[in-house]
């Protein structure tokens, strides 16, 4: 059992699977690869944490609200394009 605080995450299997973890969390990995990742995670706490926190990272950014187009920016855009008579 590896200690996640000190484990350098550079063991062969961890490194081999690291590059495929986004495919895995996006549900785009083939079944065979999913099985391989899940079997490895059952034994490797570091990779469990990696997958969990990577997934949380993506979730956080998905919830981040976007900036709306401010009225003054919109007005300047229409003026710049000389279409301000179409601005409603």
């Amino acid at each position: 059992m590896s200690d996640p605080a000190t484990h350098d995450h550079d063991r062969g299997k961890c490194r081999e699977l690291l590059g495929d973890l986004s495919l895995y969390i996006d549900g785009e990995a083939e079944q065979e690869l999913c099985d391989e990742i899940e079997a490895h995670m059952a034994e490797c706490e570091s990779c469990r944490i990696m997958v969990d926190t990577l997934r949380k990272t993506v979730t956080l950014y998905h919830t981040m609200p976007a900036d709306p187009l401010p009225d003054d920016v919109e007005e300047r855009l229409y003026k710049r394009l000389d279409i301000d008579n179409y601005l409603s």
């Binding site: 996640p4 605080a5 350098d8 969990d52 981040m64």
Partner: peptide
């Protein structure tokens, strides 16, 4: 390329669930 010696610097677990948290201005 991913295989350029990248090693995750941080492996500590997070102590919260993003689904249950409010996106504070500090976190944003």
């Amino acid at each position: 390329e991913l295989d350029d010696g990248y090693v995750p610097r941080q492996l500590a677990d997070w102590s919260f669930d993003p689904d249950e948290m409010v996106l504070t201005s500090e976190l944003r």
